[in-house]
Design a protein around this nucleic acid. Structure first.
Lengths: 148, 148
DNA sequence: CAGCGGTTGAGAACGGTTCTCACACGTCGT
DNA sequence: ACGACGTGTGAGAACCGTTCTCAACCGCTG
């Protein structure tokens, strides 16, 4: 069941839910999914303006994709809110705080166990978690070292 | 070194850094530290207006406390941004998505190991992580069950 | 007690996000 | 094929949370 190229299934996800997958939505999705690093809404809007995509649509679509679990919100070292397209399924981002490059990893094994413990200890019914790891990627570290 | 009542050390934290601990800052700190659930900036500003604390000061102080690591940003199930005062030291919040009650736990054992693996695998130098667990507390679950 | 740096409050300014509304598009029924 | 309808879209206005400005204030220090 683990799809090697889940990105292409987006259209199927929309179809299943009966949500139209329009030209604009495809463009916005491609923008985030095609980037190897997290991007802000403003960047997406700027980048897609020439394609005739309005910023209201970018906001709406990012919210929609977020609801569908297709876009994760992260932030860079300066605190700026960015979005990054995860592959379908559950994974966590390792983000370079400088260039916002995102590497995804599966840390659920570690977290699931923790959640079970927490649930038992507190009586909470746990419905989710949010795990991001921040670091500086090798490239940026080299640059920071150089200019320091 | 583990302080049983670290909350009272806030003043010391400020003093050490040479930052004045003013009346307003104390009120704002008490507001968050005294609550057993996460609160929004607006709530704090509303609650402290009668004490003569301006909203600009609330914003400034929340940012300051955040920088000092004394306030953590979380969000409830509706996505609203809230702040919660962690005890000094590293811990993670388990948040009730409905009433925003916060239970803190130490999940670092689980994460540290993961970070080491990630660092080795990717070459990133890891400087931090963000882990929150979301659930519904027993009280809210009872209520949701009742009205459903 | 005067001087001085840092903090504060009120209100203005700013900017990101959402809303409004007319129009375009695609779908479905006829 | 055609027309009505529901939905999505773009431009711009409106909104609202956040930040900035600036004069007044406070608590130090000498």
């Amino acid at each position: 069941m683990t799809d090697p190229e889940p990105t292409h299934d987006i259209e199927a996800v929309f179809r299943e839910k009966g949500i139209p997958f329009t030209r604009q939505r495809r463009l916005i999705w491609d923008f985030f999914a095609g980037a190897d690093r997290a991007a802000t809404i403003t960047e997406a809007a700027d980048g897609l303006r020439s394609e005739g995509v309005g910023q209201a649509t970018v906001y709406r679509t990012v919210a929609l994709l977020g609801d569908l679990g297709l876009l994760a919100r992260v932030q860079d070292r300066s605190g700026e809110i960015c979005y990054t397209a995860p592959p379908i399924g559950h994974s966590h981002p390792l983000i370079c705080g400088v260039c916002r490059r995102v590497v995804r990893f599966d840390g659920d094994g570690d977290v699931k166990e923790l959640e079970a413990r927490l649930s038992a200890a507190t009586g909470f019914s746990i419905y989710g978690h949010h795990l991001e790891v921040y670091g500086i990627c090798p490239d940026c570290r080299r640059e920071e070292g150089a200019q320091a």
